[in-house]
Design a protein around this nucleic acid. Structure first.
Length: 428
RNA sequence: GUGGCUGUAGCUCACCAGGUAGAGCACCGGAUUGUGGCUCCGGAGGUAGUGGGUUCGAGACCCAUCAGCCACCCCA
């Protein structure tokens, strides 16, 4: 047992897992790029106030989950608990929202919560935010883009899209009042948490897991009855576009989401494969936020996906991503090792697509071949005394039955050309 | 913040009515003096999460603490 451990809820991603992470990140960046979205990178630390005002003062995130601290100048700072606030801040600060903008970011987020499956204190999100497009075709594009990503990952058929509209700020305010009034009449039938939320955030009572509370909600007023015409039209058009594109979704009138800044569209992609933490990706519209941060009145819409949860999902589906070298170089002695090192360098220059690992630290041929096998390399490339003397190299296939061959310089280059062509085919 | 379960070798786990630790896999070496994957043989590796208590004696019992897992809350 080592003296130090990673601190609670913050985990190391070890070499065996990083290939899967890289695959996940690569597919994301491919899909995003294919849709014309550009990457943005913002600081991990912002003023506490930025998060408190955008996410909402009475949300759990702000009330109890933020890593907040005074810096040496007594400024009140926080580790970012999500990415939308920072992104909006950056876009406004640099005056980038004069015309429509579509951006994405990826990186660690921090929330002080009790760890459990699919939940850590430091976790990673991929977020997408689009500005200046108020129409529902944007909402549709974002959801189609998600589906593209799920398809490339092979998780399309274990995810469900849940969709709702929570209307404009004003219509929601009316609804909130009506809902609170109704629920106050059934106060005693509500569970303890819901009783508390009646004062702080009544909408959140809608997705309570308590059976008695859900029974009360059965006859509660519905948001649908309070929607303003514009929100209703927006939502209808979105549903139309999704149907047109063959994106299946489940209307979930209880889906409200916990962050204050949403309006109109809200959605979540969920799965039944991950236990309690079912949401893999969530988002919606936030048309008022840019203005709130001092920009012009500009529409906004986006989502964030939890990368740990996607990794877990890929792992439960036995999706693997391996990084195996093409060549593993073994050598018989110091002289041969020196020659081999020069040759490896030359190969990496002339055949940059090939993965070339050189055995270092000496040892018998036997132990070097064991290493070669464990590396997963397709070929062992042998530099022994005989090869050095003849100016040749021996190649032994590690993954197939064939015999090893000894090649001169020209033969080797032909071999490597073919090998590189084949390894690129596999990647395509 | 609340609740339940758990904490013995790198990993998965055993032993134990309380008498000072063992297996499989992984790792290293050998059988094959220039060649891996199978087989056989050998080796290394643990102050039993940590601290305290009960006891002649505790990895086993009790308490505390830390950590992990799962769930609640909430969210990605």
């Amino acid at each position: 047992m080592s003296q130090y451990r990673a601190i609670r809820g913050m985990v190391d991603i070890l070499p065996d897992d990083t290939p899967l992470w890289q695959m996940l990140e690569q597919t994301a960046s491919d899909v995003l790029g294919a849709h014309g979205y550009q990457e943005i990178r913002t600081p991990i630390v912002e003023s506490t106030d930025l998060f408190a005002r955008s996410i909402g003062e009475v949300t759990d995130i702000v009330e109890k989950e933020m890593y907040t601290f005074p810096d040496r100048n007594d400024e009140n700072l926080s580790l970012r608990p999500e990415g939308t606030a920072s992104t909006v801040r950056a876009m406004v600060q640099h005056n980038l929202i004069q015309s429509p903008q579509r951006v994405w970011y990826m990186g660690p987020m921090f929330r002080y919560e009790r760890p459990q499956k699919g939940r850590q204190r430091q976790f990673h999100q991929l977020g997408v935010e689009a500005f200046g497009i108020p129409s529902p075709d944007l909402d549709a594009e974002l959801l189609l883009m998600c589906r593209q990503w799920w398809k490339r990952l092979g998780i399309d058929d274990v995810l469900t899209l849940e969709l709702n509209t929570i209307g404009s700020g004003e219509s929601r305010q009316h609804y909130k009042t009506a809902l609170s009034d109704y629920l106050r009449g059934h106060f005693d039938a509500l569970d303890e948490d819901s009783q508390r939320r009646l004062e702080t955030n009544p909408l959140r009572i809608l997705d309570s897991k308590s059976a008695s509370t859900q029974a009360v909600l059965a006859d509660a007023p519905a948001m649908t009855g309070f929607l303003d015409d514009e929100s209703r039209a927006h939502h209808d058009r979105l549903c139309e576009l999704l149907t047109l594109a063959g994106v299946g979704f489940v209307a979930n009138p209880n889906l409200v989401r916990g962050l204050d800044y949403y309006n109109k569209t809200v959605f979540e992609w969920t799965t039944d494969r991950l236990g309690a933490q079912a949401t893999v990706c969530g988002g919606g519209r936030y048309d008022g936020m840019v203005r709130q941060f001092g920009g012009r009145d500009t529409a906004g819409c986006g989502f964030a996906a939890g990368l740990e949860r996607l990794i877990l999902l890929l792992q439960t589906l036995d999706v693997e991503a391996l990084v195996e070298p093409d060549l593993y170089i073994v050598s018989s002695d110091e002289n041969a090792l020196g020659k081999a090192m020069l040759e490896a360098d030359r190969i990496r220059t002339e055949f940059p697509a090939l993965g070339v690992v050189q055995h270092l630290g000496g040892g018998s041929f036997k132990s070097q071949f064991k290493r070669a096998d464990k590396s997963g390399a397709a070929w062992a490339m042998v530099f022994g005394a005989e090869e050095i003397a003849q100016g040749t190299v021996t190649l032994k296939p590690l993954r197939s039955k064939g015999e090893q061959v000894t090649l001169d310089r020209e033969g080797l280059n032909q071999f490597l050309t073919q090998l590189e062509a084949r390894s690129q085919d596999v990647e395509e």
